[in-house]
């Protein structure tokens, strides 16, 4: 191939203060922030919804089912556009005022991160539900007969055990949230994918820019997998398939 590789392009100044490498790293940092914050939202909301789907209350489980069905059947890009354009319109005036008082990049980052978290929560909810439903019913009954109230049984027995069972699917969900954060570029968040386009436009070095960005995604994936394999080892339940004891 007669292509002249010019990797030194990343050391060239992009503007007065930054090099192209700084752009790349800034994009990676935004992706990491979005994925992490989005996952915090998804974890809390998804756990709550997963519990709601399993409690003996038709109203609560109905709410959770409706949420999951709506969020899972609309593409993420449409949801992010809705969060960016439509949701602020529905907010009370004072909230909207303070949201739009932020710099545009912050507004985009906030709405996209919430959208990403809400989207992932629906998927995580199904994993939490599957985890809770996979537990033997004796566990719940034993907790209740020990004098736990139902919320206590969830808090101290059912949720901790099911979290430890669903670490592997949780890992792939965390990997997905970092990949899905690339869609936030479409509403103007300057994360890794947006930086790929920017680098390509500014440097006219398409191959180098794209390879660098793909390597950044690999790095994020690798770090998540390493962290989660430690988590999996530390939290593995003895006596189940896949445990060593």
């Amino acid at each position: 191939m007669g292509y002249q590789w010019t990797w030194s392009v990343f050391l060239q100044p992009a503007n007065g203060r930054e090099t192209y490498l700084d752009w790349l790293l800034a994009g990676m940092w935004t992706t990491v922030q979005m994925g992490t914050l989005g996952w915090v939202i998804a974890f809390i909301l998804g756990s709550a919804l997963g519990v709601m789907r399993t409690v003996p209350n038709r109203f609560l489980s109905g709410v959770a089912v409706t949420y999951v069905e709506i969020v899972r059947n609309v593409p993420l890009i449409v949801q992010l556009f809705l969060w960016y354009y439509v949701v602020p319109k529905l907010l009370p005036d004072t909230w909207r005022g303070s949201l739009f008082a932020q710099p545009p990049a912050t507004t985009a980052f906030l709405t996209a991160t919430i959208g990403l978290g809400v989207f992932t929560a629906a998927r995580f909810c199904e994993q939490v539900r599957a985890g809770i439903e996979s537990l033997p019913t004796g566990l719940r009954n034993a907790a209740l007969s020990m004098g736990f109230t139902l919320p206590q049984a969830y808090r101290y027995v059912l949720l901790p055990v099911s979290y430890r069972l669903i670490v592997p699917p949780m890992t792939s969900e965390i990997l997905s949230i970092f990949k899905n954060s690339s869609i936030a570029a479409t509403v103007g968040v300057l994360e890794l994918f947006a930086r790929a386009r920017q680098l390509n436009d500014y440097t006219a070095r398409g191959y180098e820019s794209f390879i660098a960005v793909i390597l950044c995604y690999f790095a994020i994936n690798a770090v998540v997998m390493i962290i989660m394999s430690v988590v999996e080892r530390k939290t593995r339940l003895p006596g189940f398939m896949g445990s060593r004891s």
Partner: peptide
């Protein structure tokens, strides 16, 4: 499986 679809589409477009 480790890169986002958007990235794949843009790369192929290039």
């Amino acid at each position: 499986r480790s890169i986002p679809l958007a990235m794949v589409l843009l790369t192929f477009y290039l």
